[in-house]
């Protein structure tokens, strides 16, 4: 009896923790887990990005895996709870650690890891630093997190068949990073933009400001019923939901250009540009100064 009780308690605890990992079926077969709007920390273990999976008739595609193996395991458990079908693909939308460090949780499923054509190079260049930072900032609980390089890469467009369900993966030119990939599900007209769209959470420039603004101009032409941003509330109005991000990036562009024209140093620009935007975004203080730095380094080479 005591053993049974223990098992019951363990089972109940397991369920409770699994259900603590909230999941939303935003369209038939499309599940999204919302990350918290915080910096990665030992408390959230890197659960800061929107991640999820799509279930077809034959198998499942996981889209991003969270900021540590702990989050990856929770996501995997959520897949197991939702379906008996195998996981055939793990798609990484870009190189950032909050999207890839759960990959190792899926290794035993032997999925095909999929990413942008430039993702392997970015992982090679940054992986060591990302692992050091993970250990330093999130601690021992994230042990087992790994960089897993995609074996299937996308140079332009790639279609994946999940059985009665076709996903179209598109590799973009340099924007949020130099390895951004979007996923489109034809069945439900769901466009998984990941970090090419931030809502609520301040956008983060780690590729090219001008490139990102030009990519944003193409999005309104895409007909979609559901939109999944990398951070912030899913299903923003479309295409109006692009406006806030585009406004912020345009302010960065014009004010940094102005600073360079007036011969301000990088540090002066960082201290003055874009402060009017502070109240519009979460995590402004964590990322805005970085954005100005990146924009300055890019724009000083104009003309």
């Amino acid at each position: 009896m005591r053993i049974l009780l223990c098992l019951f308690l363990a089972f109940a605890t397991g369920r409770a923790l699994a259900s603590g990992f909230a999941l939303n079926e935003i369209a038939p077969g499309i599940y999204v887990h919302r990350g918290v709007q915080e910096d990665s920390s030992p408390q959230n273990l890197g659960d800061i990005a929107n991640i999820g999976f799509i279930i077809g008739d034959k198998c499942v595609a996981v889209i991003d895996t969270g900021g540590s193996i702990v989050i990856g395991r929770k996501l995997r458990q959520a897949v197991v709870n939702a379906t008996r079908l195998p996981i055939c693909y793990v798609i990484n939308t870009h190189v950032h650690p909050d999207h890839i460090f759960g990959n190792a949780a899926f290794k035993d499923d032997h999925p095909v890891f999929v990413g942008h054509d430039k993702l392997p190079a970015a992982m090679a260049a940054r992986g060591g630093n990302y692992l050091n930072a993970l250990k330093r900032d999130l601690g021992a609980a994230t042990q087992g997190s790994e960089i897993i390089i995609p074996t299937l890469t996308v140079k332009d467009v790639l279609e994946l068949d999940l059985g009665g369900r076709r996903l179209t993966l598109k590799a973009w030119r340099t924007a949020h990073t130099d390895n951004d990939l979007t996923v489109f599900d034809e069945k439900t007209q769901t466009l998984w933009l990941s970090d090419l769209l931030f809502t609520e959470h301040i956008p983060v420039v780690d590729g090219s400001l001008k490139g990102w603004l030009s990519v944003l101009k193409e999005f309104p032409g895409i007909k979609a019923h559901h939109i999944i941003p990398g951070h912030g509330q899913p299903d923003p109005p479309w295409p109006q939901g692009l406006q806030a991000e585009s406004d912020y990036l345009n302010v960065l562009l014009s004010e940094v250009r102005e600073a360079i024209k007036h011969r301000q140093t990088l540090q002066q620009a960082v201290d003055t540009v874009g402060l009017s935007q502070r109240n519009r975004w979460l995590l402004f203080d964590s990322f805005h100064r970085r954005n100005v730095t990146a924009a300055y380094a890019e724009l000083e080479w104009e003309d």
Binding site: D98, A125, Y130, A133, T174, T177, D178, S208, R290
Partner: peptide, 22 residues
């Protein structure tokens, strides 16, 4: 150093090579 996203690597590796020496 400011956190995970921030790594001392380039942002657009191909563009960097294309402009080398200017």
């Amino acid at each position: 150093a400011s956190g995970g996203c921030s790594a001392p690597a380039g942002k657009d590796q191909e563009a960097a090579l294309a402009r080398l020496g200017k």
